[in-house]
Amino acid sequence: MTKRFFITLLLYHFLGVSLFCQFEEESWRFRPQIGLWFGPVTPFPGSALSYYLDTNLGGGIFWRMNLPSDTWRSEVGTSYSYYDSRFQSALHTVPVYGAVDYLLPIELPLTFYAKLGFGAMYVFSEPNKRENWHPLMLLGYEASFPAGKWVNIGARIDYFFVYEGYLRPPPHFPGYRVVNAHLLKFGLMVNFNLSR
């Protein structure tokens, strides 16, 4: 399952690149962006992990380019977030994802995107030092405005569903419940237009 996710995802991404070559002559222009964000991260309130982990800080980087359409863009990104607790429990996460961003048709000087993405997340837990790569799905929302020619400033909310349910519970652990992660990341964001 995981592999199929990524093949589809990567093909989609490279499709964008190859299409761009064909449309270069038209009025549509290639406008890649690179961006940074940081902000609070938290397990989704009420989800299984929210009882064991607290809110902390995270930050990330993404690269984005417009598809041969003015309403769709593609984005790849990664980030790091750390969740700790009042106890010894802690979680480190590094998602790697690709997403399509849809420009919401809202008539304001702001730009709004809704995002859907897939990828994988490297996860590492303390104190038992368990690590793995898990498939993820991303739903995102973003609002930004231009601050001059090269810079956009905005805010983003990413919701990550990270799937662990494909694993079996350990054999000698009665009552063990396999859980998935629902993580929220809020970011203040700056992105740079690499071309005009």
Partner: peptide, 30 residues
């Protein structure tokens, strides 16, 4: 395209190597 294909395969290989079979979230919740 050949380079991209290669990158894609490399990425998948890294992914496959990364799968440890360990329960991470569940370990925190149990």
């Amino acid at each position: 395209m050949r380079r991209e294909k290669l990158l894609a395969y490399l990425y998948l290989l890294l992914m496959a190597l990364g799968c440890t079979g360990e329960l991470v979230f569940s370990d925190l919740a149990n």
